[in-house]
Computed example of a mutant assay.
Amino acid sequence: MTAIDQSPTMIEIKGVHKRYLLKQALNGIDLQIKKGSIVGLLGPNGSGKSTLLKMMAGLIYPTSGTILVNGREPDVRNKQQIAYLPEIDSLYSWMTVKETLQFISAFYSDWQVDKASLLLHAMELDERQKVRNLSKGMRARLKLIAALARKVPLVLLDEPFSGIDPMSRAKIIHSIISEFQADEQTILLSTHSVKESEPMFDDVIFLQNGRIKIHDSAENLRSEFGCSLENIWEKVYA
């Protein structure tokens, strides 16, 4: 099931396959993602979510097929147009929160100091704290600030809620919604936390075994299945 939309396109993928030695990670992906939307990328472990996001970020390349982000093929030069938040935590533990944000900001000309300050307050982080003293949830909030403080057309978030407490998940979701600029940004968010994330999503993509199983608007899916996205998840992957 694939939704057809005539809105301006942020991401266009045609016939994309990705193979790692003996593993087929993506197996014939055709996809269009419209500008100005928050898209949920859902699926069990190994379904291809992280591979797809890394490909959009220009960190890896397809074995075959084409991918365009905002009209051009993604590569390392696109980093000024894309904010990518990986699942892996690569923060320096010896830095303070303030030093971490200053360090990251030096790499990007689009860094918004005022926005970073507002997000720091919203996430309830003390800029004087050392990263090594932060809980996993606090570190996740800090990583999200690093992504959302940039003024870019595309934001890619890979499992931003992985293994963190409900309070941190709530703060992160609130910040994503409150800071989202529909006229300027597109956000793709990979997550297993479907219940909490559901209110954010304009569109939803369900991946399975490197293929798109379902792609439609969240509203259409809830209407068609007569239940929440969380319940749809259970039906799709039962």
Rank of each mutant, 00 (worst) to 15 (best):
L188T: 03
D126C: 06
D158L: 05
V113D: 13
R132F: 14
P166F: 04
E99H: 08
F103M: 10
A149C: 13
A122S: 14
A106T: 10
E127V: 06
P166K: 07
V131Q: 01
D114I: 10
L101P: 02
E179V: 06
L142R: 01
A140P: 04
N133Q: 12
S93N: 11
M167F: 13
L188W: 05
K130I: 07
V155E: 00
T100R: 05
I145E: 07
G137Q: 03
A149S: 15
I145Y: 08
K115E: 15
A106S: 15
S105I: 01
L144G: 07
M167G: 00
S162M: 03
P86H: 05
S93C: 00
Q102L: 11
H174E: 15
V152T: 14
S117G: 03
L188N: 02
L156H: 08
T100F: 08
S175R: 04
L91F: 08
S93Q: 13
M138E: 13
F180L: 09
A149G: 06
I164F: 09
S135N: 05
S168H: 10
P160C: 03
S117I: 08
S109P: 04
I145S: 04
S190K: 05
G137C: 05
D89S: 04
L118G: 01
I104Q: 11
I173V: 14
S117A: 15
L154A: 07
D165H: 09
W94M: 10
K171S: 11
F107D: 01
L188Q: 04
H192K: 06
K115C: 11
E179S: 15
L134V: 07
P166E: 07
H192C: 08
S168E: 09
S190M: 06
S135T: 10
I177H: 14
I176Q: 07
K136M: 13
L157E: 02
W94F: 15
S190G: 10
Q112C: 10
L142G: 05
A146M: 13
R169A: 12
I104G: 00
P86A: 12
M138K: 02
S162D: 12
G163S: 10
S190Y: 03
L154C: 08
S105N: 05
I177M: 12
R128S: 15
L157I: 11
K98N: 13
W94Q: 12
R141L: 08
I173L: 15
V97M: 03
V131F: 01
K136V: 06
V155L: 12
K143F: 02
Q181N: 13
S93K: 12
I176P: 05
D110K: 01
S105R: 09
L142D: 03
S93Y: 07
R150G: 05
D183S: 15
K171G: 00
S117T: 13
V97Y: 03
L91W: 10
H121P: 00
E124V: 07
P153C: 11
P160D: 02
E124W: 00
R150T: 06
L188S: 01
S178Y: 02
K143E: 00
P153Q: 09
S109L: 12
L125G: 02
H121K: 15
E184S: 14
L91N: 06
A122I: 00
Q185E: 15
E99I: 08
M167L: 15
I88T: 14
A122D: 15
I176Y: 10
Q185L: 04
M95K: 11
D165T: 08
L144H: 03
L189T: 03
